[in-house]
């Protein structure tokens, strides 16, 4: 399990990085926690790795002065997980972070890497959808909703770098819920559901579809939680895989939706 040979560049500016990415078959290396296993398996063999870890100014969690947050793409999971500011503003994201991998992986893995890797069972992409994040790149700003095109497939161009995540403020009094079921601690979700309840409900399913998915039909049925949970089951199109069948995942979506909505409603009421 040794990776194929590659060249390595560690640019110190985004411009340099983008230029380097102009080369065919180059790949961005952030925390490496998803990319390197793939390289070790030789599932990927890029000829050039562009390590964006040495570009200054991509690692921050900042108040946007409007109640939201700006997070640098190279901010590590552990920083996100332990940020008080983030915990106050977006407790649902804080809660979801508890399910992401293990300490040593959270110490290295980055929010940008997770979002760009786009594993449908990863927590962060789903949370971006839930929180209506906007993803700022070296070329444009993309709504989280438009970012995911398929499993491990995003709207990013080959030479486009995600630089910042913008989380708009949650309306005061928004309640939230996050529920996950995994077979083993720290594993990717078998299925997870996040929900917020304010003026209206917002629900996102993780690990139950080829991308993270807004459950709009279920949202529309809120406050009838039972009906929403039933509808959620039909909205996702999971695959059968090693760890769970499509039927089981639908079942989980329904169960987790109910619990997430109940927590969210309770939080909203209080």
């Amino acid at each position: 399990m040794k990776p194929a040979a590659f060249e390595y560049l560690a640019p110190v500016s985004l411009a340099e990085a983008v230029a380097a990415l102009g080369r065919d078959d180059a790949k961005i290396l952030a925390g490496g926690q998803s990319l390197v296993p793939m390289l070790n398996f030789r599932l990927r063999a890029p000829s050039l790795l562009v390590d964006i870890g040495r570009i200054p100014g991509l690692d921050y969690i900042e108040d946007d002065r409007a109640g939201g947050l700006r997070i640098g793409a190279m901010t590590r999971h552990h920083t996100v997980e332990t940020s008080d500011l983030l915990r106050q503003r977006f407790p649902v994201l804080h809660a979801a972070m508890q399910y992401v991998a293990h300490l040593a992986i959270r110490n290295k893995g980055t929010i940008g890497g997770s979002l760009c890797h786009g594993d449908p069972a990863a927590e962060l992409p789903g949370l971006m959808l839930l929180l209506d994040a906007r993803l700022k790149t070296t070329q444009r700003t993309i709504a989280a909703e438009d970012f995911y095109e398929g499993a491990l497939d995003t709207a990013l161009a080959e030479d486009e770098i995600l630089t910042e995540i913008l989380l708009p403020p949650l309306p005061a009094g928004t309640g939230w819920g996050f529920e996950e079921f995994a077979r083993r601690s720290g594993d990717f979700a078998l299925t997870a559901v996040g929900a917020t309840v304010g003026e209206e409900a917002r629900i996102v399913a993780i690990g139950a579809h080829e991308t993270p998915l807004r459950l709009r039909a279920a949202e529309a049925l809120f406050p009838d939680i039972e009906a929403a949970a039933e509808a959620a089951r039909e909205e996702v199109s999971p695959n059968d895989d090693l760890h769970g069948s499509a039927d089981y995942r639908r079942h989980l979506v329904s169960v987790l939706t109910r619990h997430a909505l109940m927590s969210a409603r309770e939080g909203a009421a209080s």
Binding site: A10, L29, G32, V36, I105, N107
Partner: peptide
């Protein structure tokens, strides 16, 4: 100062 997987990190990154 942080625990990491040394199998998921290239030596060049540790410069």
């Amino acid at each position: 100062g942080d625990s990491v997987r040394s199998c998921l990190c290239f030596a060049v990154q540790a410069d």
